[in-house]
């Protein structure tokens, strides 16, 4: 465990909690892509099946359970409790265009052709593109609320910190996982345009981000 991974994990946790609290406090999920949240729930479910097969550390187990729990809680709030506020008309990204190719790729490019390993690979590939429905929704409506942009910022920061973590681990532990690294680079790149807007618009005092 190095400082980059720890802050990466905490940044990821912050993003998840920010979104959950935003929906809970405002009693509304307007502007949030339910599809992205379902994809993240799927990502955590398929990645953390190893909770049942191996124990790594108390930290590891606790965080996995929190991530999975929060992901399903978010999906529940969007599709059940605050369903009336869900902006389904603008959440029109075709998720099958992500899930099907990603599933195929996980079958073709993996470390080991075993069910758990393929599901883990699937989750890594899917995570890298799971935010696309949310970014698509923002580009469609033309704006995002401040809290939503904070959510996206921490979510992007998390993977960027993981990239530094992987460089660190390569130099100091000789550790590298090509699948995680390539998917992590793709994931971080998807947030770059958003990061730029977040910083520039944030300084201008505007509370909305307009990608157009």
């Amino acid at each position: 465990m190095n400082i980059f991974r720890l802050t990466g994990d905490l940044s990821h946790l912050a993003a998840i909690i920010i979104l959950l609290l935003k929906i809970w406090k405002t009693r509304s999920c307007a502007g949030i892509s339910g599809k992205s949240q379902v994809l993240f729930a799927l990502v955590f479910t398929t990645r953390y099946l190893d909770l049942l097969t191996s124990f790594i550390s108390l930290y590891n187990t606790t965080m996995k359970i929190i991530y999975i729990g929060c992901a399903y809680a978010t999906v529940y709030l969007i599709y059940m409790k605050f369903k009336a506020t869900y902006d389904g008309n603008h959440d029109t990204f075709r998720v099958e265009f992500l899930v099907v190719p990603v599933g195929g790729l996980a079958f073709l490019v993996n470390h080991d052709f075993s069910p758990l390993e393929i599901l883990w690979t699937f989750s890594i590939y899917l995570e890298s593109v799971a935010i696309l429905p949310q970014l698509f929704m923002i580009s469609k409506t033309g704006e995002a609320e401040t809290i939503t942009t904070h959510y996206l910022f921490f979510l992007g920061l998390y993977r960027a910190l993981y990239l530094i973590n992987w460089i660190w681990r390569f130099y100091f532990e000789g550790f590298f996982d090509m699948i995680a690294i390539v998917a992590g680079v793709v994931q971080t790149i998807l947030y770059c345009d958003f990061f730029y807007l977040y910083v520039t618009k944030g300084e201008s005092g505007s509370n909305k981000i307009n990608p157009a």
């Binding site: 991974r5 994990d9 190893d50 191996s54 470390h111 080991d112 075993s114 993981y162 090509m178």
Partner: peptide
């Protein structure tokens, strides 16, 4: 490299 890595990351 065709080997399963240790999944100690989240």
């Amino acid at each position: 490299c065709h080997r399963t890595t240790v999944k100690d990351e989240l």
